Computed example of a mutant assay.
Amino acid sequence: MRELAGRLALRPTKQRGQNFVTDANTVRRIVAVSGVGPDDVVLEVGPGLGSLTLGLLDVVERVVAVEIDPLLADALPATVASRRPDRAAALTVITGDAMRIEDLPRPWPTAVVANLPYNVSVPVLLHLLATFDSWQHGLVMVQAEVADRLAASPGSKIYGIPSVKMAWYAETTRVGTVPPSVFWPVPNVESGLVAIRRRPIPETTASREQVFRVIDAAFAQRRKMLRSALSGLVGSSAAASAVLQAAGVDPQARGEVLEVTDFARIAEQIFS
């Protein structure tokens, strides 16, 4: 990996969250825990120098890699061709920002497996869930603190906006920790592995955008009771109390104790 980086004159940047996995056993572990197999088309975001890409190509039908850095995107096909020439045709590389990708080549992905950049991991993941509904399962590696938040349950101190919005789309489970020592450059935090399994979105007459507006308002000031936190959406604390009671939610509760289905019922009352 370092030899390849040297040939490319690559200088990893914090701006793009470039920390590359250099340990082969970690790559094998990520691929194994992800549960992908020979029938999967995997969407990988931020393949970097290609260590995880090569590991995925060992077991899946095809990998579609989205890389924002043109230098790395241009180098990846050659890396795969030199290391696994028999699998080179199974790789598609898209140069671009994963947050702006709206279409992908067929066949569409059935899974997402990625080492997501720390600074944009949550918005990227939510964008992929919202935009490409063909993928049903996956595994992402993110900063350990973010992994905990993504998988947090109602009532937890770390349960918040990422937790609830993920629950709109999928069941998430914290399935492992990855030490800083397996990366280059070495980050100053641990990473966490989060397994994702998509499930049907809640049955509701409210739109996703409406439900997410309620979630954002509920957690804008965590210490506030919901009747106060939602007053800006409905005009007053008294109006918010009426909405919450109609939705079957205690007006004195806080957002951190609500399920995603509770937020959906509140949105129905506000926006119907």
Rank of each mutant, 00 (worst) to 15 (best):
V124W: 05
H137L: 09
W135A: 04
T131D: 04
W135P: 14
N119S: 15
V142I: 04
V122A: 14
A130I: 02
A130W: 00
V122M: 12
A144V: 12
L128H: 02
N119M: 01
V140Q: 05
A130E: 15
L128D: 00
F132Q: 04
P117D: 09
L126A: 13
S134F: 00
V142W: 08
W135K: 05
G138D: 01
P123F: 12
W135L: 05
V124G: 01
L128I: 02
N115W: 10
V140I: 12
L129E: 05
A144Y: 15
V122R: 09
Q136D: 10
L128K: 00
T131G: 02
S134I: 06
L139Q: 05
V124H: 02
H137R: 15
N115R: 10
W135I: 05
Q143P: 14
M141L: 14
L128Y: 01
L116A: 10
Y118V: 08
A144P: 05
V140C: 13
Q143D: 14
S121V: 03
F132W: 04
P123M: 11
V124Y: 09
H137G: 09
G138V: 06
D133N: 06
V142P: 06
W135H: 01
M141A: 00
N119A: 15
S134E: 08
F132A: 13
A144C: 01
L129D: 05
A130R: 14
V140W: 11
L128V: 04
L128C: 07
T131A: 14
Q136S: 14
L139C: 11
L128M: 14
G138T: 03
V120S: 14
T131Y: 00
M141F: 03
L139F: 08
V120C: 00
Q136M: 03
A130T: 10
V124M: 12
S134K: 00
V120Y: 01
V142Y: 03
Q136G: 15
S121Q: 03
Y118Q: 08
V122Q: 13
A144K: 15
L126M: 09
F132N: 03
L129W: 03
W135R: 01
Q136T: 14
W135V: 05
L129R: 00
W135G: 10
M141R: 00
V142H: 03
L126I: 13
V140Y: 07
A144D: 15
S134C: 06
G138P: 04
Y118H: 11
A144F: 13
G138I: 00
V120N: 00
Q143L: 04
D133H: 07
L126Q: 07
P123Q: 07
Q136H: 08
W135M: 09
F132S: 04
L129C: 01
Q143G: 12
H127F: 09
L116T: 13
F132P: 08
V124C: 02
